[in-house]
Amino acid sequence: MNVKKQFKEGLITQNPVLVQLLGMCSTMAITTMLFNGLGMGLSVLIVLTCCNICISALRKIIPNDIRIAIYVVVIAGFVTIVDLLLKAYVPALSASLGVFIPLIVVNCIIIGRAEAFAAKNTLGASTLDGIFQGLGYTVVLLVMCIIREFLGKGSFGGGLLDMSTGSLRVVFDGSGSGVQLFPAKFAATIMILPVGGFLTLGCLIALMQYLLRKSEEKKAAKGENVK
């Protein structure tokens, strides 16, 4: 079990969204303000970790032929738990994410990690994998939220930070209006519309490909020198 390697894989070299290209629907759909991104990221992190634990613990007794069906039932069970908890305790988040919370069931990240990692590895490693892959997903969501909110509304931390009383407060019910960094009338509203989601994610993946290629080249050059 290699914690450092798994951490790096989850966040950078095997990032679920930017490198494995999984779970793009929710990534583009809900990243219009920081509150949504954080809520969705944490929900997926919890579901992913629980499913990884469960499937890894059961991996020796799950029959190979019907494994996908079992994964789906396990995932749907945990998603239902998270969905009901959010409805009860954070109704604002549940309302603003809408249908995308139950849709975590068909989020390819979770079934992908179950099949590719949890079904083959020990309980501890799978737990860590769930946490780090979930973190990788959350970080991408937060970055997308920050970019789109800044360009589209000229604000930061929508739903989460509140300036209406004059001083900065952190609220957890989604009512905060965010910190206005420049007047909203100068913002490009298109960035918080669906178009902005496609463009931002496209550019982020391109940036990731560029960085990964650069580091590959550097490694290759180093290898040459050693020879």
Binding site: V195, F198, L199, L201, G202, A206, Q209
Partner: peptide, 19 residues
């Protein structure tokens, strides 16, 4: 640009279609 190869350029195209 080379970095846009594959998925990124497809996403940008889809974005313009969405527009």
């Amino acid at each position: 640009p080379k970095s846009f190869e594959g998925f990124p350029i497809a996403l940008v195209t889809a974005g313009l279609l969405a527009l």
